[in-house]
Design a protein around this nucleic acid. Structure first.
Length: 310
DNA sequence: AAGACGAAAGTGGTTGA
DNA sequence: TCAACAACTTTCGTCTT
């Protein structure tokens, strides 16, 4: 089909004046005859996207429905933005002499959007949060939780006097734990350009200041991740969880680092299932030392009457 | 040769006076 | 502010597979 025929097919004749100067105004959903001004169809449906998107980025740019409300944008993605087209709300063009005024309006709109110090603070923090959780490929729910925690912290003036980045990292750590997708302090530190110690300190301040009820991380929560990193089967995972259940039933887990417990039970399970990994391999993944695994697993084996043959 | 073992000293953070 | 403290790490020589 060449351009010529396509053009012909698109012509709509105005029933009022018989001309074909019809203007489709998708932004207002109207078919208007530019000669006599008759609105032919005010219920014009914009059928499907007139654009094509080849990748996610393009689609995000072109999609007309906005994102759902989210805590990860500092104004929850709900603020008004003055559009850039030089048209007024009736679709008419804005005269040149008013362009400067429009420009100033847009400028102030932007400034109001990120006005107070807190808004600015939030904007920075949330972009940090986003970057860090991307690097850790954390699920959306964790990002939202982290953003919410940071928001609360900001509202309670817990950020002033602290580094935004550190507080953001601490929020993320807290969110991970709350959502039962724990990351170690090391892992958070890794992507946050700060130290484990500092994040830990800020985290504690956060918990105290917001009255968050945080349970110590459960060893169970680490298992699936460690297993997949070690290339261990579901059997091992199941076995590990069994061991952990038994161990916590016998009060063998309290007062011990959950990472050490997780690593030790994983080691035991890997041996029992005939998919043995060395203490060193597991230690590296879990972020503890072989010695800790050794101490924990000896203890578990002794107190739980597990027979282990290396 | 690699892995497991365990003793001993060191580390960083918490707690309580 | 400081010392005691528990959990964990580092280090290293020895034993096991």
């Amino acid at each position: 089909m060449n351009k010529e025929t396509q053009k012909v097919e698109d012509i709509i004749i105005c029933p009022e004046c018989g001309n074909n100067h019809i203007n489709k105004d998708y932004s207002r959903g109207e078919l208007v005859c530019t000669d006599c001004g008759l609105v032919i169809d005010d219920d014009l449906i914009d059928q499907g996207p007139e654009w094509r998107a080849f990748d996610k980025e393009q689609r995000q740019k072109r999609e007309r429905t906005g994102s759902p409300m989210t805590y990860t944008i500092h104004d929850k993605g709900l603020s008004t933005v003055i559009g850039w087209g030089n048209k007024d709300s009736y679709g008419g063009y804005i005269p040149t002499r008013n362009r400067a005024q429009m420009y100033r309006l847009r400028k102030w709109q932007r400034r109001i959007r990120i006005s107070s110090g807190m808004e600015r603070n939030l904007a920075i923090a949330l972009s940090d949060l986003n970057r860090m959780s991307s690097n850790l490929s954390l699920p959306r729910i964790v990002r939202e939780t982290a953003a919410m925690i940071y928001r609360k912290a900001a509202l309670r003036n817990l950020v002033r006097g602290r580094s935004i980045l550190e507080t953001a990292a601490a929020s993320l750590y807290a969110a991970c734990r709350q959502c039962h997708v724990p990351r170690t302090l090391e892992e958070i530190a890794e992507v946050s350009q700060t130290s484990r110690t500092v994040i830990g300190r800020n985290y504690r301040a956060l918990v105290r200041g917001l009255g968050l009820k945080m349970m110590p991380p459960a060893p169970q929560d680490f298992i699936s991740r460690f297993c997949s990193k070690l290339g261990l089967s579901g059997d091992v995972q199941t076995k590990t969880l069994e061991i952990l259940k038994e161990a916590s039933g016998r009060e063998l887990t309290s007062g011990r680092g959950p990472l050490g417990i997780a690593a030790a039970s994983l080691y035991i399970a890997s041996v029992l299932c005939g998919e043995r990994r060395t203490q060193r391999e597991i230690a590296d993944i879990a972020g503890v030392t072989e010695v800790t695994i050794r101490n924990r697993y000896k203890e578990l084996v002794r107190k739980m009457d597990i027979e282990i043959v290396l």
